[in-house]
Simulated assay, not measured.
Amino acid sequence: MKKALLTFSVMLFMFCLGAQTSQAQLKRFSLGPFVEAGFPTGNFSNTHNTGYGIGIGADIKLVAGLTAVGSVSYMYFGGKSQTDALGNRYDIANAKVIPIRLGLRYNLISILYVKVEGGTANFTGDYNNGVGALVAPGVGIRLLGLDVEAKYEAWFKDNTHGFFGLKAGYNF
């Protein structure tokens, strides 16, 4: 009886170890840093220069081809100098924003995906202080851990602050 119990325990342990190893190879969760550049459009381009950001993103595979994604980042858009009707020059305040995004990504083929995210844009500093909503559809390529994405992102607070963005990151 003791031999049978010992044999069963060893087999159960080996099975659990094998299942754990195969689960690690599936890699259902990843986390990694990214950098991004934003090119303002519309009225936002009249008041601000190209923006830059850094952040961290995570994703969890749900079902075949569908993944839940999330990220938090810091974006900075430098303000431009303007001239009023009387010829006086003034500076627009820099836009410092902390976007928090949640969304879904769908793989069209093994490396090509489409993604849509929504969330909040937390404006800090002197420019448009407060919280607004955001939406960010995009398309990208993910090869091994390298992730490159092109997107359009719009922040809604008082008026629309939109930009085309390029994002590059690595997921572990």
Rank of each mutant, 00 (worst) to 15 (best):
L6V: 12
L6P: 00
T7D: 13
T7S: 13
T7K: 14
F8H: 06
V10K: 15
M11I: 10
M11G: 05
L12V: 07
L12H: 01
F13D: 05
F13A: 14
F13E: 03
F15Y: 10
C16K: 00
L17Y: 08
A19H: 09
Q20V: 12
Q20Y: 13
Q20P: 00
T21H: 11
S22L: 03
S22C: 05
A24H: 10
Q25K: 09
R28N: 11
F29H: 00
F29M: 10
F29C: 00
F29Y: 12
F29A: 08
L31H: 05
G32Y: 02
P33K: 04
P33R: 04
F34W: 01
E36V: 01
E36G: 00
F39G: 00
F39K: 11
P40T: 08
G42A: 05
F44K: 07
F44E: 03
F44D: 02
S45C: 01
S45H: 03
S45Y: 01
S45M: 00
N46R: 08
T47H: 12
T47Q: 13
H48Y: 12
N49M: 11
T50H: 05
T50D: 02
T50P: 03
T50Y: 03
T50V: 15
G51H: 12
G51P: 06
G51W: 11
Y52I: 04
G53Y: 07
G53E: 05
G53I: 02
G53L: 01
G55Q: 04
G55I: 00
I56W: 08
I56S: 09
G57F: 01
G57L: 02
A58E: 09
D59Y: 10
D59C: 03
D59M: 07
D59F: 09
I60F: 13
I60M: 09
K61R: 14
L62F: 08
L62P: 03
